[in-house]
Design a binder for these strands. Structure first.
Lengths: 228, 228
DNA sequence: GACTACAAAATTGTAGACAATAATGTACAC
DNA sequence: GTGTACATTATTGTCTACAATTTTGTAGTC
C-alpha cells in the first residue's frame, strides 16, 4: 500500500507533466491547494524539488503561488483565455510558415508518426494519451521550426490552453481530434504555405469556438464578493 | 573594503533587476559565466537564493543554464531577435488598444509622471536610469491593460529586448528616447485608438530598425565550429 | 614524445534542518 | 453572549551541509 511511492526518483519535468495531465484530465480542479509536503510524499521526492516544480508550473500559468500562503491551481479568466488563443494564433502561424521553409522529408515522416499515435490513442479511447499527444503535436511543430524561443513561449501557451479547455469547454467537446492535425501535415508535406497557415488558424479558431467564453460567472473565491 | 556587501538582505527581484541592468549596460557580456558562489558573495546572500535568481533569469531568457555546467549570459541569435520584436508588436498593439478602452484620467497622469522621469533621466544623461525607465514604461502600459497574463509575457520580452539591443545595436544608438513615449501618451489621453496602435507599432519598428540584424557572424563558442 | 588512464579540485545538484509567517482555536474581559 | 487578545499549530521560506558531476592536472605507458 504505502509502496505506491515511485521507486525511481522522478525528475522535475516528469512531475510537472504528471501534474499538468492531472489538471488536463480535470482530476485537479482549479483553486485546489497544493501543499508542498503533500506533493513531496506523493512523488517520493524532497520538498526542495517540489518547490522547483511549483515555480515552474507558476511560470506556465498552471498554478498560482501566493507568498506565505501556498500554491493553488490557477483559474484563468475569460480575458486571459482569449489572450492565450490570440497569441497562439500569432505564434503558431509564424511557426507553420517557418517549418514549411525548412522541413525535410524525414521530419515530415516524424510528424506522420506522431499523428498515427494520435489516431491510435483515439481508437482505443485513451483520453489521457490523446490530451498529451495533442499538445505534443503543436510542440513538435515548434521544435521543427528551429526557434527555441518560440517553442518556449508556445509550451507556456499550450499548458495554459489545457487548463482553459478544462474550465471553459462546453458539454459537447471533441478535444482537438487528430483529423485536423493530419490535414495540416498534408499541407506541410505539399509545402502549401498559405494553405497550412490558414489551416492552423482555422484549427485554433475551431478549438477556441468550442469553448464557452461568454459566461462571466466564473467562480470567485473572494467571499466578500459572493455575499455582497 | 569587504564591507561592500549590502547590509540589508537583497530580495530575489532586486538581484534579478541588478543583473538585468548590468547586462543592459553591457557590463556583463553575453557568454559570461555566472558562478553561483561568486554571485552569493557579491550580493551577500545564500547560494540557494542565487539559484532562484538564476532560474528566474533563465525564464526571462537572460541567462542560459546548462545542467552540471553552470549559468551563462545568453546570446540570442538574429532569428530570436526578430521573433521577440514580432511578438512585442502583436502584444503591445493589443495592450494599447485595451488600455485606451479602460484607462482613467488618474492613470493617464501616472503615465505622464513616468515620462517626466524619463525626460529627467535623459536630461542628466543618466543612462542606467534611462534604460530602466524605458523598459518600465512599456511594462506600466501592460499593467494598465489589466491583463496580468500579457504583462507577464511582455516582461519576458522586454528583458530579452534589452539583451538584444546590447548585442545588435549599431554604432549610433538613441535608446528609445522619451519623445515617442510622450507622443503615445498624448494619443492615449485623446483616446485615439487607431493612432495610438499605429504609434506603438512605429515605435517598436523604429527600435528594431536601429539594430543591425543582418550580420550572421554572431560569435560562436563552439570551438570546433571556429577551427573547422 | 604523445596519448591514455587515473586522481584531485572545483562547481553544481540535492536533501534535510531550522526560522519566520499566517491560520486557527481558546480563554478572558466586557 | 460577544468580541478581542493570546497561544498553538500548520505551512511556507531560507540556510547550511553533503553528494554527484564535471573539469583540470599528473603520471604512467606505448
Amino acid at each position: 500500500m504505502s509502496q505506491d511511492a515511485p521507486a525511481r526518483k522522478a525528475t522535475t519535468a516528469e512531475i510537472c507533466e504528471r501534474i499538468w495531465l492531472s489538471i488536463a484530465e480535470n482530476k485537479l480542479r482549479p483553486g485546489t491547494r497544493l501543499k508542498e509536503e503533500q506533493l513531496s510524499e506523493v512523488f517520493g521526492v524532497s520538498r526542495a524539488r517540489v518547490r522547483q516544480v511549483l515555480t515552474a508550473l507558476e511560470q506556465d500559468g498552471l498554478v498560482c503561488i501566493i507568498p506565505n500562503r501556498g500554491a493553488f491551481v490557477s483559474e484563468p479568466d475569460v480575458d486571459e483565455a482569449r489572450d492565450v488563443f490570440f497569441l497562439r494564433k500569432q505564434i503558431e502561424e509564424r511557426i507553420v510558415g517557418r517549418v514549411i521553409e525548412r522541413i525535410t522529408d524525414e521530419q515530415v515522416a516524424c510528424l506522420r508518426k506522431h499523428t498515427a499515435k494520435e489516431y491510435a490513442a483515439a481508437a482505443r479511447a485513451d483520453k489521457t494519451a490523446a490530451i498529451r499527444l495533442s499538445g505534443h503535436f503543436h510542440l513538435l511543430l515548434a521544435e521543427l521550426s528551429g526557434s527555441s524561443f518560440l517553442r518556449g513561449v508556445l509550451h507556456d501557451l499550450i499548458t495554459r490552453s489545457s487548463l482553459i479547455t478544462v474550465i471553459y469547454r462546453q458539454a459537447a467537446l471533441h478535444d482537438c481530434g487528430p483529423e485536423e492535425h493530419s490535414a495540416l501535415v498534408d499541407q506541410i508535406e505539399a509545402r502549401d504555405k498559405e494553405g497550412a497557415i490558414a489551416s492552423m488558424r482555422a484549427h485554433l479558431t475551431h478549438i477556441e469556438s468550442d469553448l464557452d467564453l461568454t459566461r462571466q460567472e466564473r467562480p470567485t473565491h473572494d467571499l466578500s464578493q459572493i455575499f455582497l
